[in-house]
Design a protein around this nucleic acid. Structure first.
Length: 266
DNA sequence: TAAAATGTTGGGTA
DNA sequence: ATACCCAACATTTT
């Protein structure tokens, strides 16, 4: 369930049932989920810590605990749900946090790419991340500076988490279509006006997707409905909403890329 | 069957 | 230092 709007949706759904809960124990059915510490150390160190708050940084969920920070990255297929302990567990619920009440937090992850971190300082994990695109201080001018500081095609640049945090394959394509910018256009070729257009498109796209509770695709259906509003992603051959020309699909940096070759200009 | 799927990272090469 | 490509991670679905 990964990109910024989906992670934000999960955070909002988990906050109420998680904050204030004490973690009584953890079950590790796929120990490689744990990215820091040995499974044994992880279990003993997290036990009896309380969840004090929960927020999102890029695509990471950041749980503030009594003494440490618990970070979870869902990668391609991860999902988190708080459910009564009596609810039957799915086949892919690999890591389970048992609360002191009658509920538990389940990290389900079909492809097992997801990772769990327990650290004293969240910066140990999120340190390399670029700015939050929805932050108040992320201005069009800041984006212009970021773009012109490198010489890279826009699409791979938007996917680079150290440049901007949280944008993934869907929302990169969506933002570029809305901004009418070609995914291979060089980042340092944008005018200030074009950078401002991309800034507005990116923020609009992400905010709209959050309003729709994210996108539900590829077997992960959790109530999100933004997949019904895609303008480019997964719309190969269908008409561009800007100009009517068919959406093209190419592969860039190993990732499928959808765009309109008529109105998204280089 | 081969290919692709909301992601990241490490290695090798320009 | 910067940019770029590919394989790897593991599983399911089309």
């Amino acid at each position: 369930m990964p990109e910024l709007p989906e992670v934000e949706t999960v955070v909002r759904q988990l906050r109420q049932p998680c904050v204030g809960q004490r973690i009584a124990d953890v079950t590790l059915r796929w120990p490689r989920h744990i990215a820091t510490l040995s499974p044994r150390q992880f279990k003993s160190r997290i036990r009896d810590q309380k969840i004090q708050s929960l927020h999102r940084r890029g695509k990471y969920l950041v749980f503030s605990l009594t003494n440490d920070f618990l970070l979870i990255h869902l990668k391609m297929s991860g999902d988190l749900q708080v459910l009564p302990k009596a609810t039957p567990r799915g086949k892919h619920a690999h890591t389970i946090f048992h609360f002191a009440n009658d509920q538990e937090l389940r990290f389900s992850d079909t492809r097992k790419f997801g990772r769990v971190y327990l650290v004293a300082d969240p910066e140990e994990v999120t340190g390399p991340l670029g700015p939050e695109p929805l932050a108040r201080n992320f201005t069009a001018g800041k984006l212009f500076n970021i773009l012109t500081a490198r010489h890279r095609p826009l699409k791979p640049l938007l996917l680079d988490q150290t440049v901007i945090a949280g944008v993934g394959n869907i929302y990169a394509d969506e933002s570029l279509n809305r901004a009418r910018l070609h995914p291979q256009k060089r980042s340092d070729s944008l005018t200030r006006a074009e950078a401002r257009t991309l800034w507005r498109s990116l923020r609009h796209t992400l905010n709209l997707a959050i309003r729709h509770n994210g996108s539900s695709i590829d077997t992960l259906y959790r109530g999100g409905e933004h997949q019904n509003y895609f303008r480019a992603y997964d719309r190969e051959g269908e008409p561009c909403y800007n100009c009517g020309a068919p959406i093209q699909r190419i592969v860039l940096g190993g990732r499928s890329t959808h765009f309109c070759s008529d109105c998204q200009t280089l």
